[in-house]
Write a protein that binds this DNA or RNA. Structure first.
Length: 856
DNA sequence: TACGATCCTTTTTTT
DNA sequence: AAGGATCGTA
């Protein structure tokens, strides 16, 4: 077993089930990995082991949900390769970095984006050319609004958000517009179906796709185009999917078809009998049901892939016993669950702290102080160093005190970050907010990017509309409307209308001139679409700089800053500068060979069936040699393998825009920085911190009020809480505030039912919410004490009772406002009524505290 | 046509 | 509290 010589270090420190997972090579495998069970360690080692037995790096496809997870996986594989020189010949000569780069480790969405670019033309999907734009949710929203008004519907009856979420769910379920139409039976369904159809039409005309299309269209191509499917199956022989519990139907289809097996098709003509698909997940950490994640993917994996091996990783290596016990006690309350106790061999550790505080400011300052004392080493020292690869990397300060970067605060909604931020800033404690998208969401950045999107895709009407008069250049709504009418009559994109502005009736001289100048500016950047000529920027950063300057954005914000003297406007200029830097950095690091859609290297047809092929591997080219080579597929019916030749600048620009479109919030978590991380519970998945605080354990917040309707939603909230808890290694604090300011109104809260579900023996509760400290209108909250003490069941019963007590239209008396008529009643954690008072006007009151009496 | 003031509604998580 | 929409004025 010569080639297995290198496997020893890979198995060191592993438990039996972990070893079994690392050693699995052929056939479907399901790894049920409980929180903190060393999942990442197992899958990275398994990848290295595969390479050790002769699998070529480009035959490995690993799919994650965030770029950060993908980057980390690649980095850890690389480190393992370098440390162990596993498999001798395979790692040797190439260096870990080169091998790691040849692996395809990416997100579902990035993979799909690349496959679509590559195959769009071949697959002849209507409205999809390789220079397509990816619309973010703001783009989607403005497009769907336009569509709704275009159908003579009102956006108040058909809110864009709601409609889009229905469409999104449909797409995640692989229902395109016609599929949806076939199912729509009631009025609402038919209307939405009409909007869906029109929205799709608008996307096609703009040569654009939304996030869900990336998956839907890829699934469609793989299903309908056998030759494309075969090509992918030939290239990627070993498929690995992380966080499998969060995959939706579309992702399942894609995975099954890439693997070449599974129940994706009754008669898979190219089906592989024993597909090498390895999925890793934990049903208890499924927190994306609301965006289509389908738990049955993981629950029924063995049915979908008969003969699948199942390995359970149950032992927790991350958290202390009390933290684990609290997590276990909580998750046990879920009924839709296969019981699977969490356990650790380790004993000891501090109790979990539950703190009841007065309000969000109190809460924030308590956390800051707690973190500070841990940072200074005053508490929590002396515990055994926990075994975790991420944190044993040697960067930990020796001796005492938890570094800032090992601490984090989690919250249910982004809105809660503000107060925390102020508190950390005020106390001089370094912090970062994990919002990867924040930068690209700024107005000035979105404007600059919209110019770039129009450069990349001249049919992108949504982006063009955004910037055609930003900054103002004399093309107001009236002129634009005329051009738009012309364009849609001609079936041309808006930009064509601008080009032909001279011939459009009803346009003023000034508007025609402005349109002409705009088109001229754009053509200057693109060489009129040729990307050739002296006016065309030579690189991406230069293009971005030209856009920022020539478009007038820079001048516009400079003037604004000078005029208003405000900090904010000066910041906008800085941000535009930062955008140019980000483009420069992207340009420097851009590696077309990393494109998962790029060429398959030579010798596509053969795998190392257990036979060591190390010597020949070295002579093969990695996919980074030349992007256009045809490899062994001469007889490919479609001839040229690479997409039609594209100007390098355009290629770079597209890749840049794509990377910008696909950033996730979690991507912004950078533990290298010495700062406390603030993030949502959703973004926290997959991470771990020594010290964790979770804020807002209140009814309506966690569990969130929007999840109050169904038991399934409630269980997902519980899993979300579970995910937060299990991130903590040694110290966990959970806070519940008695009052919280919601949208400008301070409201009495009810502490979360989850607090009552923790194992009391493992928790130490501190009540700092001294009611007597709270002055305020006693008329309004006199009953607080009683209300807070009502048992959960009683509380919920009271809620429904109080709601039916005040049907709309009834007359009520309020101690302060007098007689009024109930307009509407809202349910939720804090039921409230809108009441039109005879004297005091219309008010919205929280029923629980308003002391309304019914008088008729 | 552009900008500002005012009124109104909003109410989660994210690739 | 904050963003969006609408309306009125320069």
């Amino acid at each position: 077993m010569d080639r297995e010589r290198g496997v020893e270090p890979l198995l060191a420190d592993l438990t039996e089930p972990q070893r079994a997972a690392v050693l699995h090579v052929e056939g479907p495998l399901l790894i049920l990995a409980a929180a903190g069970s060393g999942k990442t360690r197992v899958i990275t080692r398994r990848i290295v082991r595969l390479l050790g037995v002769g699998v070529r790096p480009w035959q490995v496809l690993a799919l994650t949900f965030t770029n950060k997870a993908a980057g980390e996986m690649r980095e850890r594989v690389e480190r393992l390769l370098e440390e162990h020189e596993v498999g001798g010949g395979v790692g040797g000569g190439w260096g870990g970095e080169r091998v790691a780069r040849a692996l395809t480790i990416t997100t579902f969405h990035s993979l799909c984006a690349r496959l679509l670019r590559r195959h769009a033309e071949r697959a002849r999907i209507p409205g999809l050319k390789p220079d397509y734009s990816i619309y973010d949710s703001a783009d989607q929203q403005s497009l769907v609004k336009k569509v709704i008004t275009g159908l003579n519907l009102s956006t108040s009856n058909w809110p864009a958000r709601t409609v889009l979420s229905v469409i999104s769910n449909a797409k995640n379920d692989l229902l395109d517009a016609s599929g949806f139409a076939a199912r729509a039976s009631d009025f609402r369904g038919r209307q939405i179906s009409a909007i869906y159809t029109a929205y799709e039409g608008a996307l096609h005309r703009a040569n654009a796709v939304d996030f869900d299309d990336l998956l839907l269209l890829t699934a469609r191509i793989l299903k309908e185009r056998g030759e494309i499917r075969a090509e992918c199956q030939n290239r990627w022989r070993y498929l690995l999917i992380d966080e499998y519990q969060d995959t939706n139907r579309a992702q399942f289809q894609i995975a099954a078809m890439l693997a070449g097996g599974g129940a994706w098709n009754a008669a898979p003509e190219r089906g592989v009998s024993n597909p090498n698909i390895c999925v890793v997940g934990d049903p208890d950490q499924s927190i994306y049901g609301w965006r289509g994640a389908d738990l049955s993917n993981i629950m029924d994996f063995e049915q979908a892939f008969p003969g699948a091996a199942v390995i359970k990783l149950g032992e927790n290596f991350r958290s202390t016993a009390p933290i684990l016990a609290v997590a276990d006690g909580l998750i046990k309350r879920n009924k839709q669950r296969r019981d699977k106790p969490l356990f650790t061999a380790r004993a000891g550790g501090d109790k979990v702290r539950v703190v009841l505080c007065r309000d969000e400011h109190h809460e924030a300052s308590l956390i800051v102080e707690h973190f500070r004392s841990r940072h200074e080493g005053a508490e929590g020292e002396g515990g055994a160093r926990l075994c975790s690869e991420e944190h044993s990397r040697g960067t930990e300060q020796p001796g005492r005190g938890t570094p800032w970067r090992s601490m984090a605060v989690f919250y249910r909604t982004n809105a809660l970050s503000r107060v925390l931020e102020d508190a950390f800033r005020g106390a001089g404690v370094p912090y970062t907010i994990a919002r990867g998208t924040a930068f690209f969401d700024r107005e000035e950045i979105k404007n600059a990017l919209a110019y770039l999107k129009v450069v990349a895709n001249p049919a992108d009407d949504v982006s063009l509309e955004r910037i055609v008069n930003t900054p103002t250049r004399g093309l107001g709504n009236t002129s634009l409307a005329a051009i738009q009418v012309w364009a849609s009559d001609q079936g041309e994109p808006l930009l064509e209308g601008l080009r032909s502005a001279g011939g459009i009736p009803g346009l003023t001289r000034a508007a025609q001139g402005a349109a002409g100048k705009f088109v001229e500016m754009l053509d200057g950047w693109t060489g009129a679409g040729s990307f050739l000529g002296s006016t065309v920027p030579s690189g991406l950063a230069e293009l971005v700089q030209r856009v920022v300057e020539d478009s007038g954005l820079e001048g516009h914000y400079t003037r604004q800053a000078a005029k208003s003297q405000s900090e904010q406007d000066a910041e906008r200029l800085d941000n535009l500068g930062e955008l140019i830097s980000s483009a420069a950095e992207f340009e420097r690091e851009f590696a077309p060979e990393r494109d998962p859609g790029s060429d398959v290297p030579v010798e596509v047809g053969e795998v190392a069936e257990g036979e060591s092929s190390a010597p020949s591997v070295q002579s093969q080219s990695l996919p980074d040699t030349s992007p256009g080579r045809g490899g062994g597929d001469e007889d490919d019916a479609f001839g040229e393998f690479a997409p039609s030749p594209m100007p390098p600048l355009l290629q770079l620009l597209r890749a840049y825009l794509e990377s910008v479109a696909l950033v996730a919030d979690a991507d912004a978590v950078d533990p290298a920085q010495g700062a406390v991380t603030l993030m949502t519970l959703h973004a926290a998945k997959g991470l771990e911190f020594d010290t964790v605080a979770i804020v807002g354990l209140e009814e309506g917040l966690l569990p969130h009020s929007r999840a109050a309707e169904s038991e399934a939603d409630l269980e997902e909230e519980r899993r979300l809480c579970f995910v937060g808890i299990t991130r903590a290694m040694r110290s966990l604090t959970m806070c519940s505030a008695r009052y919280r300011t919601n949208r400008g109104i301070a409201e009495r809260t009810i502490s979360s039912r989850f607090l009552e579900e923790f194992d009391p023996a493992q928790v130490s509760t501190t009540n700092l919410a001294d009611d007597s400290d709270i002055s305020g209108d006693r008329d309004w909250d006199e009953e607080d004490g009683e209300a807070a003490d009502v048992s959960r069941a009683g509380r919920r019963a009271a809620e429904t009772a109080v709601k039916s007590q005040f049907p709309p239209g009834c007359l009520v008396r309020h101690p302060q406002f007098g007689i009024g008529e109930v307009v509407s009643v809202e349910s939720g954690a804090a039921p409230r009524a809108t009441v039109r008072f005879k004297q005091a006007g219309t008010k919205t009151l929280i029923l629980e505290y308003a002391r309304l009496t019914r008088v008729g």
